[in-house]
């Protein structure tokens, strides 16, 4: 096909790309925008029909309350309206920040343990020949096929036997068990792409297996490490069912539990609820956005082209 003016297709391409980008952005962001907008509305405005996409009277009262009560600067108003702001602040407002702290501790610990346990295991599966290697990966992944609901009660028994009820450690070990199979899977696939020569050359130089792993493979595997860390972090930050069962008090409750508590508290304020939702969403989204470039390269098969 002969194109008379070469500028034409480029303009068309740019237009298509722009339209597609806008469409994608709207699809991805609209629901979140709605959540954010409603968290900035008053309880009266939030039930307007039709709903207000942009608040008439935007207010940060929900967030102010969460931070003020969470940091111990103010008391919640258990019997309804807060006389100072005229807003409605449920009594659990003060639990949100501590719960965020708990979520953060759990997720961080799970990430660190995932790396400590997952990296050596993945390396062994990818690079060392041993009996049972063929089925190892599938056996590890198969532990995640059974629906969690069937496992809730026995998980609880394990946690109680270990004396970890209402202890953050109960969440750390169970989340580790849940996330590590996937981490090993991703890392093993990544290591497998690395040339065996690397391994052999280093071992000829007298390195032990552990030294090869630490000095040769780890530096190259950084994107994959970031990717699995993010996966483990998000999974831990978001988990609900097990946290619901193992935690009992504000000392160990994580953010999803507090948010769920607010949704079913009969004195609930919808705008406050959405503010709590925004709070739960922010940290994982921030992490995902910051480490975005690693996720693609971390999962890229054949990232090392030798």
């Amino acid at each position: 096909m002969i194109v008379p003016r070469p500028i034409g297709p480029r303009v068309v391409r740019a237009a298509i790309l722009a339209a597609a980008s806008v469409l994608l952005l709207a699809y991805v962001l609209a629901p979140v925008a709605w959540l954010l907008s409603s968290s900035l509305q008053t309880e009266r405005e939030i039930v307007s029909i039709p709903p207000h996409w942009i608040p008439d009277h935007p207010t940060a009262q929900n967030f102010r309350a969460i931070f003020a009560t969470g940091l111990g600067l103010a008391q919640p108003s258990p019997n309804g309206a807060d006389p100072a702001s005229g807003g409605f602040i449920p009594s659990v407002a003060g639990n949100l920040l501590p719960a965020m702290g708990n979520s953060f501790i759990v997720a961080t610990a799970v990430v660190i343990l995932n790396l400590l346990i997952g990296v050596p295991a993945a390396y062994a599966i990818a690079k060392i020949r041993f009996r049972g290697r063929g089925v190892a990966l599938y056996a590890i992944l198969a532990t995640r096929v059974i629906p969690d609901i069937a496992l809730v009660v026995p998980f609880f028994l394990v946690v109680r036997k270990l004396g970890l009820l209402d202890n953050l450690a109960s969440l750390i070990i169970t989340y580790l068990a849940i996330t590590v199979p996937f981490s090993v899977f991703v890392l093993a696939s990544f290591f497998e792409q690395m040339p065996d020569d690397l391994d052999r050359a280093a071992r000829v130089d007298g390195c032990s297996r552990l030294q090869v792993l630490l000095r040769v493979f780890l530096p190259l595997a950084r994107p994959a490490l970031v990717a699995i860390s993010l996966f483990a972090f998000l999974a831990s930050w978001n988990e609900f069912l097990l946290a619901l069962m193992f935690t009992q008090t504000a000392a160990s409750q994580t953010l999803p539990i507090i948010v769920a508590g607010i949704t079913s508290d009969f004195t609930v304020s919808f705008s406050f609820l959405n503010a709590a939702g925004v709070l739960a969403v922010l940290p994982p989204v921030a992490l995902a956005v910051i480490f975005e470039r690693y996720i693609v390269s971390g999962l890229t098969a054949g990232a090392v082209k030798g």
Partner: peptide, 8 residues
């Protein structure tokens, strides 16, 4: 963003 949002 959607991927990172907690299911609750």
């Amino acid at each position: 963003i959607p991927w990172a949002i907690p299911s609750v």
